[in-house]
Design a binder for these strands. Structure first.
Length: 318
DNA sequence: GCGTCCAGGTCTACC
DNA sequence: GGTAGACCTGGACGC
């Protein structure tokens, strides 16, 4: 779909704000889609906001302590005033511009693990999807397989069922909308993208979000973290780990990989019986970092290589 | 070349 | 409430 220049916003994030660390994480996690393009300090990306395909060009005009982000928005049609406000609000929230890191940093400076990460990654804000569906796709494709195959599944979903945004001389593939996958049979999806048993979960989940009135990301955000998680656990194929990935409040998503990392950091050893020890590691992380558990997880995972050196432990990088 | 194991979880049946 | 076993697939590994 061709998108045209619509409007430009100047966003003033809470300081400190590192544009590059925030929109382009050290681990390579994308802001909205793995297909987005980052070059010479500018990000071209695409997502759905209010069911509308939106092309977004982001660049920094400021510094870590005097940050300004310029967001150029590309749409198929001219938005009305309400749509414009909604897109602005969504982009501002997604790039973590309103997030105040002061309290987290104060806690982290007295934490033997985090005190290193917050120095290494000063100004990195938490980013957020504009809808829950992309994170649900991520969570389901990560389940019980290798990262290589997860990436193959995600790439197929993106290119076969996603929307293509053409704008500013770039082409970016956005994640599929729930209605695009709700109309596909699990058999076709399993065959097309080698998804195996995950296909039926994903199709049922797409139908539930598309037509059964499941709360959107802003509605989940207005609930308490536990209320939001309880609702997410009602989605097909979404268990404790996946709900912690999708929850807009953040969680402490411990899987077999992060269990090795946080087992080393919190108990000095990787778990032997992962099934049993994952819950212990999760409980200890939540006990130690409380409401900042997600930010702690986020900073640690983005800083593994440095932390391995600084703490003198061998952390499994991926 | 072939068989087996296992990987960034979740669901269900059974106790 | 707790837990064992099934679930798609393909790469790695041993033989």
């Amino acid at each position: 779909m061709k998108l045209f220049p619509s409007f430009t916003s100047e966003i003033i994030p809470e300081r400190p704000y590192s544009f590059e660390l925030t929109v382009r994480k050290p681990t390579g996690w994308a802001l909205f889609t793995p297909s987005e393009i980052f070059a010479e300090g500018t990000l071209w990306t695409a997502t759905h906001i209010d069911n509308r395909l939106v092309g977004i060009k982001l660049r920094s005009k400021g510094t870590l302590d005097e940050p300004t982000v310029i967001a150029e928005i590309f749409l198929e049609k001219k938005p009305n005033a309400s749509q414009l406000r909604s897109i602005n609000r969504s982009v501002t929230r997604s790039i973590g511009a309103s997030e105040d890191l002061t309290e987290f940093y104060a806690m982290a400076e007295n934490d033997d693990i985090l005190k290193h990460a917050v120095v290494d990654l000063r100004g990195m804000h938490n980013t957020m999807a504009s809808t829950i569906f992309p994170d649900a796709i991520l969570a389901i494709t990560l389940q019980m397989t290798t990262i290589t195959r997860s990436n193959q599944m995600m790439d197929c979903l993106l290119r076969t069922y996603g929307d293509v945004a053409e704008f500013d001389g770039k082409i970016v593939h956005a994640w599929p909308r729930p209605d695009s996958l709700a109309s596909v049979t699990p058999e076709v999806l399993a065959k097309m993208c080698n998804m195996g048993y995950r296909a039926k979960h994903l199709v049922r989940l797409a139908k539930k979000i598309d037509s059964e009135g499941f709360p959107n990301i802003e509605e989940l955000e207005s609930l308490t973290p536990m209320e939001a998680k309880k609702l997410l656990l009602e989605l097909p194929g979404i268990g404790d780990y996946s709900a912690d990935i999708i929850n807009p409040h953040g969680g402490f998503p411990i899987d077999v990989w992060s269990a090795d990392v946080f087992g080393q950091l919190l108990f000095g050893k990787e778990p032997v019986d992962k099934d049993k020890e994952i819950q212990l590691i999760k409980n200890e992380g939540i006990r130690r970092w409380g409401k900042w558990s997600w930010m702690a997880f986020y900073y640690v995972v983005q800083d593994l290589e440095n932390l391995s050196d600084r703490l003198g432990v061998k952390l499994r990088l991926s």
